[in-house]
Amino acid sequence: MSSEVDRQHILDLLPFWVNGTLSEDEQDMVEAAMAQDPSLRQEAEMLSLVRTTMQQQPDGESPGELGLARLRRDIEDSPQKVVEGRSRTRRYMLSFSGGLAAAFALIAVIGNFRVSEDVYELASSNNDTANIVVMFRADVTQASMASLLQRHELVIVDGPSAIGLYRLSPLDPGADLTQLAGTLRLETDVFESVDLP
């Protein structure tokens, strides 16, 4: 190195050489300095070890799809700062069918029913018709839920309702919902129920 100042400059850049974020010029400068000064190379190796060790630490389980479902529910009550020409969010009541209707009636009978959107109304997506209403099994893992949703290109657009219902919507607006619902019904390890509104 030509001076201590230059060496200090290289030492400052070394962590960013290790994480690969330097510009091409800076990278060339650091590599030229390391070629002349083995202690800089050693320093880089040490920093690389620290970085590797840090990145190998477990991440902890993030909220995943459940967090996304919560987010989708919360944004219904969080207006955007600049909204021009956006369709107004509408809310609608889910229509229930088959076993779900029966389950709902049972809830009414045992006294938990009240005519309130908090109980059985889910906030809608912009496309009310492109939805499948499901209930996940109690023992389903977040990982298997996420995997299934991604495999079928589905997103949770609403839920959970008070009785644990979620509404799923396909990313492809042209998807055949009836066929998709049929496919999902075969996923008995994941879903307790699958219904079309």
């Binding site: 991440d59 902890g60 993030s62 909220p63 995943g64 967090g67 996304l68 987010l71 989708r72 944004i75 955007q80 600049v82 909204v83 020409g85 956006r86 369709s87 997506s125 912009n126 997103v155 657009v157 990313l171």
Partner: peptide, 25 residues
């Protein structure tokens, strides 16, 4: 997302959720 596209928010969430959560946690 600025135009109200929730599907885009889903995509951003799936892209950024893990690194942000790791950082925060």
């Amino acid at each position: 997302i600025g135009t109200g596209d929730k599907i885009a928010l889903d995509a951003l969430y799936r892209q950024m959720e893990k690194p942000l959560y790791r950082f925060i946690n």
